[in-house]
Design a protein around this nucleic acid. Structure first.
Length: 285
DNA sequence: AATTCGGCCTGATTGC
DNA sequence: TGCAATCAGGCCGAAT
């Protein structure tokens, strides 16, 4: 569920609450939450103690807490992950996986994750074309809100692909931050069918689509993110409101806000693609 | 080399 | 009522 706008809401909250504070200790309550930290949970907690959080950055759906200049705590929320700040005395959440305490004994950073698709790990920062990023995510492409985002280059790369346009939008190595929700919403806004072959799309149509991707994400960010239930929340546990503005995502048989036709749901990559059968006609081939 | 697909997880919901 | 099947879905690594 958390895509770029939701992760950005979380990033801002973590930056506000964690920058300038020093970690006193951490506690891993579920080892799967730090499975990407290969030296293991004990190494993770040992190396975190005494470190100051100097910045909080994001690329696509990844965010990381910068420690010093060369290392960071990398986090991904997966499907159901939350980063919350809670007073030390607050009862443990049912799915609390990792707790980080600070030397000021103020609110703790808590990683709560029902499905444990997400997690935390420590990684070195490396220099790439697009800036300093943690080494394990150097293969993740810049996202549409990245200062280094190059539209012309992305259009060319998409047109070189031999696949459907939605698959391309979801490929984090091509452009990051887009998930099922915003892919479907941007395709609807651009009046493009999800299976449209990338190689046959005029460059101008792809530019229009990418403009809609950026626009729908900005709209969602302005609304505090998208949420269907209590799973996605900001660091204070509050939900966003953008779900009220979705045109087609999750609305099978609902009315298209533009033409009134019944929204269709197609099987797509073992999940779903939502679209308007009138505004987004199927490609001929 | 580029692209596709299965597996990882748990809880809410649906169906028998 | 109880249990099982289904679905949600980002990402990695294996297969094609």
């Amino acid at each position: 569920m958390p895509e770029l706008p939701e992760v950005e809401v979380v990033r801002r909250g973590v930056a506000e609450h964690a920058v300038g504070r020093t970690v006193s200790g951490a506690e891993v309550l579920h080892p799967r939450a730090v499975r990407r930290h290969l030296p293991g949970p004990r190494d993770f907690t040992a190396r975190l103690a005494g470190r100051e959080v100097t910045a909080v950055r994001r690329r696509g759906k990844y965010l990381w807490l910068v420690l010093d200049r060369s290392e960071a705590v990398v986090t991904h929320l997966g499907m159901s992950g939350q980063l919350l700040f809670q007073p030390a005395g607050a009862p443990d959440e049912k799915h609390l996986r990792v707790r980080v305490r600070f030397t000021d004994d103020g609110p703790q950073l808590r990683f709560v994750d029902q499905r444990t698709f997400g997690g935390l790990h420590l990684a070195e920062l490396v220099e790439t074309g697009g800036g300093h990023v943690p080494q394990p995510i150097a293969h993740i492409a810049p996202d549409p809100m990245d200062p280094g985002f190059d539209v012309a280059d992305l259009v060319a790369r998409i047109r070189r692909r031999r696949t459907g346009i939605k698959r391309a939008l979801l490929d984090q190595g091509l452009v990051s931050g887009i998930g099922n929700i915003y892919a479907d919403e941007a395709l609807w806004r651009a009046r493009l069918h999800w299976a449209e072959p990338t190689a046959e799309l005029p460059a101008e149509r792809i530019r229009e689509l990418l403009a809609e991707v950026t626009a729908v994400m900005r709209d969602a960010l302005d609304a505090g993110g998208t949420s269907f239930d209590a799973l996605y929340v900001n660091v204070n546990g509050e939900s966003g409101y953008f779900d009220r503005s979705l045109a087609v995502y999750g609305k099978a048989d609902g009315a298209c806000p533009r033409c009134g036709a019944a929204v269709r749901r197609d099987p797509f990559m073992n999940r779903s693609a939502y679209s308007c059968p009138v505004c987004q006609p199927q490609p001929r081939s």
